[in-house]
Amino acid sequence: MHNFEFVKPSSVADAVSALAGEGAQALGGGQTLLPTMKQRLAAPEKLVSLSGLAEMTGVSSAGGVMTIGGATTHASVAADAGAYPGLAGLAAHIGDPAVRNRGTIGGSLANNDPSACYPAAALGSGATIVTNTREIAADDFFQGLFSTALDEGEIITAVKFPIPQASNYQKFVQPASRFALVGVFVARYADGVRVAVTGASEEGVHRWSAAEAALSANFSAAALDGLSVAADGMIADLHGTAAYRAHLVKVMTGRAVAAAS
């Protein structure tokens, strides 16, 4: 990979100022960024490490909202987010154990890989992405493949998840990468059900509004019976056709509803 300057700030404020320069990039757990840099597909001049910043680490719950620091690892969320079992279960199956010990929620959301798990949780929960400058609703945050509302140098310091009455994430894995070929996050709130889909669409993570409406009226897998997902706009690749992914969206949604707790 190209060489760069490694910077390890001791506070969010220091990190923000370190990121202000040209060619600087934030480093979360690096579980996606390092492989990308090895391929020389990313060549930051400066990497600003956010891992270990105490003010960005940890899981806490208050008033029905779970707040997770942006530098919290997947393993920590899996272990500490018991108050939100759908989210903890999702975190427990990202990557593999070693990846989960390094990868962070902030890094995953900022990257917005179209097959990543966390974007489905954030969108499916109607979460709020907290940065060093503002708060962004998940519905506004994800803007297509690898694209988000974040500005240059902006850091995800925390994510606030409203805790639902019931939730579940179903991932149908792509057999090689073990990312989601299709992943569906279902969360049932007092004011309705949210369904977010990852892995499937050429537009990245998105909500399935027809399912949300049907499930809000009747929270059971049977409520999906009359629905169908169009293959248009679905990803087609070596691992699945667009029609197959569209089919899986419905199957995985039904299973998530059935398993929601």
Binding site: P175, A176, D237
Partner: peptide, 21 residues
């Protein structure tokens, strides 16, 4: 699960463990 596949331009579609299972 294993499949070494090329696209119609001769690019290897399964060129890493991300796509070769």
């Amino acid at each position: 699960i294993e499949n070494c596949a090329y696209d119609d331009q001769g690019q290897l579609l399964s060129g890493s463990y991300m796509d070769y299972a």
